[in-house]
Amino acid sequence: MISISKNQLALRNGQDKPEIWIAYKGKIYDVGNSRLWKNGKHYEHWAGQDLTDELSDAPHNENVFDKFEPIGYLI
């Protein structure tokens, strides 16, 4: 798995680069194949960010990440 900084993650927002990645609890997930992350946006959330603190506002729990294999770690 890769290690990626917050600055590198920020570029994986579906706009600056084609990848659509997010971080949660220190792991990086590629959510580009999810229809819910089209163009790097999921409701009021943008890809390229650490969404750990945002989950409490979501209508789902962290099991949503079970659909995705982590591709790396946030450093």
Results as ranks from 00 to 15, higher is better:
5 S>W: 11
6 K>S: 14
6 K>Y: 06
7 N>H: 08
7 N>W: 00
7 N>F: 08
7 N>T: 14
7 N>I: 08
9 L>K: 02
10 A>Q: 14
11 L>H: 07
12 R>W: 10
12 R>A: 14
12 R>Y: 12
13 N>A: 02
13 N>V: 07
13 N>Q: 05
15 Q>W: 00
18 P>I: 07
18 P>S: 12
18 P>L: 06
19 E>K: 08
19 E>P: 03
20 I>R: 09
20 I>S: 11
21 W>H: 09
22 I>V: 15
23 A>S: 14
24 Y>E: 01
24 Y>F: 15
25 K>F: 01
25 K>E: 10
25 K>R: 13
27 K>R: 07
28 I>R: 06
28 I>S: 01
28 I>M: 01
29 Y>S: 00
29 Y>E: 01
30 D>N: 12
31 V>Q: 02
32 G>V: 04
32 G>P: 01
33 N>H: 13
33 N>M: 13
33 N>P: 00
33 N>W: 03
33 N>R: 11
34 S>D: 09
34 S>N: 07
35 R>Y: 03
35 R>L: 10
36 L>S: 10
36 L>K: 03
37 W>H: 12
37 W>G: 07
37 W>N: 09
37 W>K: 07
38 K>A: 12
38 K>F: 01
38 K>V: 03
39 N>P: 01
41 K>W: 00
42 H>P: 08
42 H>L: 11
42 H>F: 05
43 Y>E: 04
43 Y>Q: 06
43 Y>C: 00
44 E>Q: 12
44 E>G: 01
44 E>Y: 02
45 H>A: 06
46 W>K: 01
46 W>Q: 05
47 A>I: 06
47 A>P: 02
48 G>M: 10
48 G>C: 08
49 Q>K: 15
49 Q>R: 13
50 D>E: 07
50 D>T: 06
51 L>E: 02
51 L>C: 06
51 L>I: 08
52 T>L: 11
52 T>F: 11
53 D>L: 11
53 D>V: 12
53 D>G: 06
54 E>W: 03
54 E>M: 12
55 L>Y: 02
55 L>G: 04
56 S>K: 15
56 S>L: 07
57 D>I: 02
57 D>G: 03
58 A>F: 14
58 A>N: 02
59 P>H: 09
59 P>A: 09
59 P>E: 07
59 P>C: 02
59 P>Q: 08
60 H>F: 11
61 N>H: 13
61 N>I: 08
62 E>Y: 05
63 N>S: 15
65 F>R: 12
65 F>G: 13
65 F>A: 13
65 F>W: 15
66 D>S: 14
66 D>M: 09
67 K>E: 12
67 K>I: 10
67 K>R: 13
67 K>F: 10
67 K>D: 09
68 F>P: 03
68 F>E: 04
69 E>H: 08
69 E>D: 14
70 P>G: 10
70 P>Q: 10
71 I>A: 05
71 I>E: 02
72 G>W: 06
72 G>A: 08
74 L>M: 03
